[in-house]
C-alpha cells in the first residue's frame, strides 16, 4: 500500500451501507407477501428503467428525452420473439435487450456530439420516429399492440404463470441490472465519465475522446432500459404504444428526479412513488369524488402537481434529501 501523509484521512466505507443493502434485499424478498405481486413486477420493471435512465443523466450529465424508445422497442421485439417465433423466455428477453443496444448505438451515434437541450431534442425526435414506426410496422399491430404474449418457463422448468415465480424472476433480473449498473458507475470507465461530466473541455485537453465515452454510456443505458422493457412486456404479457410514447420518456425523467438524481436508490424510490400513485388513483371508481364534492382531476394532472411540489420542496429528490440530512447530522 502507498504511504499516506498523517494529515490525510482516507474516507472509509461505513458498515451502514452494508446494512442498507441487507435491508433492501430483505424488502425485495418479502415484498410479494405484503403487496400485490403483479403491481410489484410492474414497479420493478419501471425501477430498472429509471435506474438505466439515471445511469446516463447521473453519471454523464446527458438528459435523454427519448428513453421510451428503448424501453418500448425492446418490449415489442421481446414480445414478438416469444409470441411469433416461440422463443423461450430468456432468449426473448435477450433479443429485446440486444435490439435496444443496437438502437442505443444508432441514437447515441447521432446525438452524443451535442449536449443539453440539443441533445434532449435529438433524442426526442429519434424516439418519435420509433413511435411512428410502432404505429406503421405490421408486427407491432398499431394501436392493438402485442397482447397475450406467452410468458413461458424460466430455464424451461418454472412456469412464469405462477405469480410468485414471476415475481422472483423479475426481482432477480432487477437485482442483476441494479448491481451491474452500480458496478459501472464505480468502474474505471465510470470514473472517467464523472470526470467528463464535471469538466468536458478539461477531459479533452487530457487527451480523452469524450464522445466515445459518452456513446458507450448511452449504449449501456439504452441496453438496460431495453432489459427493463423486455421484462415488462413478457411479465405483463403486453407491449403497447404507450411504452414508446414520449409521455413514458417524461415519466421516467420524473421518477428519477423525484427519487433523487445520481443517487443509487433514488430512481427505485421514484418509480415506486409514481407507480403507487398511478395504481391507487386508477383503482378508484370513475365517479369518485372527494368528500362527495368534487371530482379528482386526471392522474397525469395529480402526478404533475406532486412533481412540482417535490421539485420546489426537495430539490435533491426524496433519497437525495435523506442522504443530505444524514450527512449533515454526521457533521460532514
Amino acid at each position: 500500500m502507498t504511504h499516506l501523509p498523517d494529515t490525510v484521512t482516507k474516507p472509509t466505507t461505513s458498515n451502514h451501507t452494508l446494512i442498507w443493502y441487507g435491508l433492501g434485499l430483505i424488502a425485495l424478498l418479502a415484498a410479494p407477501f405484503l403487496f400485490y405481486p403483479v403491481f410489484l413486477v410492474k414497479l420493478l420493471c419501471f425501477a430498472l428503467f429509471a435506474c438505466a435512465f439515471n445511469l446516463l443523466l447521473g453519471s454523464c450529465g446527458l438528459l435523454s428525452f427519448g428513453h421510451a424508445a428503448f424501453f418500448g422497442a425492446a418490449g415489442y421485439v421481446a414480445g414478438h420473439a416469444a409470441k411469433e417465433w416461440g422463443l423461450p423466455f430468456e432468449l426473448a428477453i435477450l433479443c429485446g435487450t440486444a435490439s435496444a443496444a443496437v438502437l442505443g448505438f444508432l441514437f447515441g451515434y447521432v446525438s452524443v456530439r451535442r449536449s443539453g437541450l440539443q441533445f434532449a431534442m435529438i433524442t426526442l425526435a429519434l424516439a418519435q420516429l420509433i413511435y411512428f414506426l410502432a404505429w406503421q410496422l405490421p408486427f407491432t399491430h398499431a394501436e392493438d399492440g402485442l397482447s397475450a404474449i406467452p410468458r413461458g418457463k424460466v430455464l424451461g422448468l418454472f412456469d412464469l404463470d405462477n405469480i410468485m415465480v414471476l415475481y422472483y424472476t423479475t426481482a432477480a433480473i432487477f437485482l442483476f441490472g441494479f448491481i451491474a449498473m452500480h458496478r459501472m458507475t464505480n468502474s474505471t470507465f465510470g470514473q472517467l465519465l464523472r470526470a467528463i461530466r464535471d469538466n468536458e473541455p478539461r477531459a479533452i485537453s487530457l487527451g480523452y475522446e469524450v464522445n466515445r465515452y459518452k456513446l458507450m454510456a448511452f449504449v449501456l443505458s439504452a441496453t438496460f432500459a431495453g432489459l427493463a422493457g423486455s421484462t415488462k412486456a413478457i411479465a405483463l404479457k403486453i407491449a403497447a404504444l404507450t411504452d414508446v410514447h414520449w409521455a413514458t420518456s417524461g415519466s421516467v425523467i420524473l421518477m428519477t428526479l423525484l427519487g433523487g438524481l445520481g443517487t443509487l436508490l433514488g430512481p427505485v424510490v421514484g418509480a415506486g412513488v409514481v407507480q403507487a400513485i398511478e395504481d391507487h388513483l386508477s383503482s378508484l371508481p370513475a365517479d369518485f369524488a372527494v368528500f362527495g364534492l368534487f371530482r379528482l382531476p386526471p392522474i397525469t394532472a395529480i402526478i404533475g402537481a406532486i412533481f412540482i411540489i417535490c421539485i420546489l420542496l426537495f430539490r435533491r429528490g426524496i433519497v437525495g434529501e435523506i442522504q443530505h440530512w444524514l450527512d449533515r447530522r454526521s457533521g460532514k
Binding site: 458496478r183 464505480n186 474505471t188 470507465f189 465510470g190 472517467l192 465515452y213
Partner: peptide
Amino acid sequence: RVALQRFRSDGFAFWKSA
C-alpha cells in the same frame, strides 16, 4: 488519477472495479 488513467488500457472497462 484521471490523467494517469490515460496510460492504462481499461478506460472503457465498465465491468472493472475502480
